[in-house]
Design a protein around this nucleic acid. Sequence first.
DNA 1: AGAGTCCTACGACATTGGTAGTAGGGGCGG
DNA 2: CCGCCCCTACTACCAATGTCGTAGGACTCT
Lengths: 138, 138
Amino acid sequence: MAKKQPIELGEAELAVMRVLWEEGPLTVRDVMNRLHDRGRRVAYTTVLTFLTRLEQKGMVAADKRDQAYVYRSKVSKESVTTSRLRALVDQLYDGAAAPMLLHLMEHERFTPDELAKLRRLIDELDEGTAGGESSETR
Amino acid sequence: MAKKQPIELGEAELAVMRVLWEEGPLTVRDVMNRLHDRGRRVAYTTVLTFLTRLEQKGMVAADKRDQAYVYRSKVSKESVTTSRLRALVDQLYDGAAAPMLLHLMEHERFTPDELAKLRRLIDELDEGTAGGESSETR
DNA sequence: AGAGTCCTACGACATTGGTAGTAGGGGCGG
DNA sequence: CCGCCCCTACTACCAATGTCGTAGGACTCT
């Protein structure tokens, strides 16, 4: 089972999680370097603080290797994304995802490929949810 | 042109904004009552604090009426939603909205009606973005 | 062995957001 | 005229976050 706790992560903490999600288990120094590569200039100890806090939150785990600890993510990006989106949908639309989805579609740009992929996904969902009767397809 | 500032709003502040968006210009007391109706038990002065802070952030405006000030939203829910979503997309996918959209579709439930509406929207967008050539539908 | 380099543990500090109490001005019901 | 009530202005507090600096233990390279 996954974490039912809201999963509260600050923006900087999230950036750290992303590094771990995308570049696997890393030491504090490695995480710092990756953050620097991504344009985040943070001090070594700052990164250490983030990782320590994330560990206390149960978001990452630390394993001693040689001289330093190697940190790895304990929660998937998927779960965090879901949690974040859910919070947003709840806060803005009382949980109704559709309005948010429409909003997103109307305000962001998508390539024809993405639209195609999306269309396929809709078809799939439609099959599953299928029942045949929807109040007039207009 | 809208506000380019990130528009940072806490969860409670957002709840206040929602009241104003949905129930028009209100006095502090009215906002408090609406919040109570929605299950948020906050003290009068807390609401006042929120409104004062929101005013400083330029999110609402206060107009003196009789004895009390009447607050009204100065930013649309749309713009805040856009801003929030944008931040999320940036933080999680470096600005790529598509992955987020797909994620949302896969993790939330939608009614056939909503799917239909979404499909129509895609068609519209497709026309606009139309060009004909998409790199292989994989 | 001494210097330089890393690493982790702590402690600090500022900002922001959530929450609220208190003080003081104005009006209103008697 | 006197309380009582509502309104706004301040001030306060605490927890979470973003950021570091310092201290002290280890290891490494002459």
